[in-house]
Simulated assay, not measured.
Amino acid sequence: MRQDGVSAEEERFIESMGLFFERQGVPRIGGRILGLLLLADKPLALGELATLLRVSPASVSTNIRQLQASGLVDPASIPGDRRHYYVFNSAGWDHRLELAISAMEALSGLCEDALARPGLKGRHKLREAVEFCEFYREELAGAAERWRARFARKPSTQASVTPSPARSRRNATR
């Protein structure tokens, strides 16, 4: 990324990320923020994100909170600087897999609960949904294991920054 902004090539990538994530149910600006953070060589402050994306700081702030909750963006601090900085969290891919596994467990539970009710017992489509959820959860769990093994072999690509205390506490509980 250039010091004065993003190149035309980077802008195309950022916009395509916005459109991709919009199709996934994430606001387009959220996808654009992810695209920019994927390209960034250093942590970016909220104001820098807004300027580079040519959007309001309020829009960045709203979307950053959602991206943090998804695990793909981490807050960071730079010693001596009071601004809030953000980085793309490569470990967020693992978090995404875990969210998908949890979703399959929850959906399976709902269908199993329905099958336990006398009036719904034996419904073929509910049983099929449970079987699909179990299959998909197992596949995702295997993918998560393979991803962790692959990711653990790679050198860290995160910028050298101090993670926020909240993220440090959250990682310590994992």
Rank of each mutant, 00 (worst) to 15 (best):
Q3V: 07
G5Y: 14
V6R: 11
A8H: 05
E9P: 02
E9Q: 15
R12L: 10
F13Y: 14
E15A: 13
M17A: 11
L19E: 15
R23K: 11
G25T: 05
V26N: 01
R28C: 08
R28M: 14
R28A: 12
I29K: 04
I29C: 04
I33G: 06
I33C: 05
I33Y: 07
I33M: 08
L36K: 05
L37E: 01
L37R: 03
A40Q: 05
D41I: 00
L49D: 03
L53P: 02
R54S: 15
S56P: 02
S59K: 02
V60C: 10
V60G: 05
A69K: 09
S70D: 15
V73L: 02
D74S: 10
A76Q: 09
I78Q: 07
G80V: 13
R82F: 00
R83W: 03
Y85E: 07
Y85D: 07
Y85F: 15
Y86E: 02
Y86R: 05
N89V: 00
A91E: 08
G92Y: 05
H95W: 04
R96V: 03
I101H: 09
I101F: 08
S102Q: 13
A103L: 07
M104C: 11
E105C: 05
S108V: 02
L110H: 13
E112K: 10
A114G: 03
A116S: 13
A116H: 12
G119F: 14
K121T: 03
K121H: 11
G122M: 04
H124V: 12
H124F: 15
A129M: 15
V130A: 07
C133V: 06
Y136V: 03
Y136P: 00
R137P: 00
E138D: 15
E139F: 07
L140M: 09
G142M: 09
R146M: 14
W147H: 12
W147D: 01
R148M: 05
R148L: 05
A149C: 01
A149D: 09
K154V: 01
K154Y: 09
T157C: 01
Q158W: 02
V161E: 10
V161Q: 13
V161F: 14
T162S: 01
R169D: 09
N171C: 11
A172H: 08
T173R: 11
